[in-house]
């Protein structure tokens, strides 16, 4: 078991009263799982993803990562866990626009204060792995959408995380590119034994999951709850 959620509740105060974005959600993710989280808009998928490592603080409930509770630890410790153990992939790629492909991939290594030479070596290796070694000096705006998402994937795995959190990674891509990205994620999951938790609207993408959670109105309606 790498990650476990126990009775996770996230409430938002709204004009019309309290909204339960997550309503007593429980799940267990094992090492090497490819988890897909599906559900209609507003069902709490992204809230779940962001709350797992402290980007959104829970109202109640426990989160256990590699045997340790992390829902009640300091921001600083959570930041450190995200830096070392988690990779994020977002729908909009979220690349830094003024950095080249290589530099974008080096950012997580920079945050870990890894030496410059090692940063270049490891980022170049990853870019080679995802087939973008010929685009290392390109700026994000000089890349296609599929290439940009591949750079974002490279950035999410360069520091060898234990987990990848992907929020609609194929949401901005056409079906062909989506498949390409999903195949990459599958490859990463299988070859590198990195656990992936992927939020998606797409049934095709959901089909890649080895474990499937379906949320509706903040509750898990299908899955291991």
């Amino acid at each position: 078991m790498i990650l476990q959620g126990e009775n996770i509740v996230k409430q938002y105060q709204h004009d019309r009263g309290i909204i339960n974005a997550l309503d007593h959600v429980s799940f267990t993710v094992n090492n090497g799982d490819f988890v897909t989280v599906t559900g209609p808009s507003g069902s709490g998928k992204s809230t779940l993803l962001l709350s797992l490592f402290g980007l959104i603080r829970l109202t109640s409930g426990n989160i256990i990562f590699e045997g340790h509770r992390i829902d009640n630890i300091s921001d600083r410790k959570l930041t450190d866990i995200r830096k070392k153990s988690v990779g994020y992939i977002l729908q909009s790629f979220a690349l830094i626009p003024y950095l080249t492909t290589l530099q974008n991939v080096m950012v997580p290594l920079m945050l870990e204060k890894i030496s410059g030479k090692e940063q270049v070596k490891r980022a170049a290796e990853i870019l080679d792995y995802i087939g973008l070694s010929d685009r290392m000096e390109h700026l994000p705006r000089e890349l296609s959408a599929g290439q940009q998402q591949r750079v974002a994937i490279a950035r999410s795995i360069v520091h060898k995380p234990r987990l990848i959190m992907a929020d609609e990674p194929t949401g901005n891509l056409d079906p062909a590119l989506s498949l390409e990205i999903l195949e990459f994620l599958k490859k990463i999951n299988q070859e590198n034994k990195i656990t992936i938790i992927m939020v998606t609207h797409s049934p095709v993408a959901a089909g890649y999951g080895t474990m499937k959670l379906h949320l509706n109105e903040g509750k898990i309606v299908i899955g291991n709850s």
Partner: peptide, 16 residues
């Protein structure tokens, strides 16, 4: 803002 957000998400501390 987005750049700050992604950096914080990737583990950049406030002091960074």
């Amino acid at each position: 803002k987005r750049e700050i957000g992604i950096l914080r998400m990737m583990g950049a501390e406030r002091r960074t």
